[in-house]
Amino acid sequence: VPVGPALAYNEPNCDDPETERAALAAVDYINSHVFRGYKHILNQIDKVRVWPRRPMGEVFELEIDTLETTCHVLDPTPLVNCTVRPLVEHAVEGDCDFRVLKQDGQFSVLFAKCDSSPDSAEDVHKVCPDCPLLAPLNDTKVVHAVDVALTAFNAQSNGSYFQLVEVSRAQLVPLPPSTYVEFAVAATDCAAQETTDPAKCNLLAEKQYGFCKATLTEKFGGEDVAVTCTVFQPQSLLPQPQPDSPDAAALGPVEDPAMPVPSLADLPAADLGVGPMVV
């Protein structure tokens, strides 16, 4: 193949409007292709190179930093309404590499690779010496707290039995001794008040997800649990991006292919959330 002239790349300003549009398109892509954890938001564009593409268009090669928000990826709340996780709650940063094609004024992601990492304990304690840190999600106290909280939620529900989708966040609080957890749930075809064997329950064809926050407080001779769950409107049967598809973004362990998680980006605004159920 005749070697054409060496392609030279252009290095625009990282805060150039076009660069920012490409970066925002890339972050939207991540948020609609990640199957667990929280939505991320653009924090800083580290590097950009723009390569001409034959016969037309150009490819933005981007390195960007993101920050975790408090919205779970299953939460249909628009990203612009999601709060950035503050430092005192033990922030989580994403480091992403993208290649984004710009053609006919449209941006489409060709490649995405992200890794997320929590802030260091030192940094958290610099701003808040007594703040709790993130705990391993398989810690026995965390697993127990989620189990007790979900049982309490289902016990007061007069609707579907909800099963656990994933534990997304946990902290072991020293004073008062307690465990704080956040987890995602999904409605099943069982009635909460009649379920004797949850293993026999199946997720609804029209997935209905929820997101719960709970605190299990140890006290003399027992424990107290407080749990709040927000149940979202059922997802219309949208074609789901299969987790093992080549373009699935790697921002953590891929969700179980048997339970594809919907891309919420294209739900009509009217379909969004119902009020929280509180226990």
Binding site: N13, D15, L87
Partner: peptide
């Protein structure tokens, strides 16, 4: 071999194009 375009050093300080601004805080 990619020919990296030479940044012609014009008069005055060259604006560092990257990294860009921090929108929230640095972890």
């Amino acid at each position: 071999k990619v020919v990296e375009p030479g940044i012609v050093g014009g008069p005055g300080p060259v604006v560092r194009p990257c990294p860009g601004r921090i929108r929230y805080f640095k972890v």
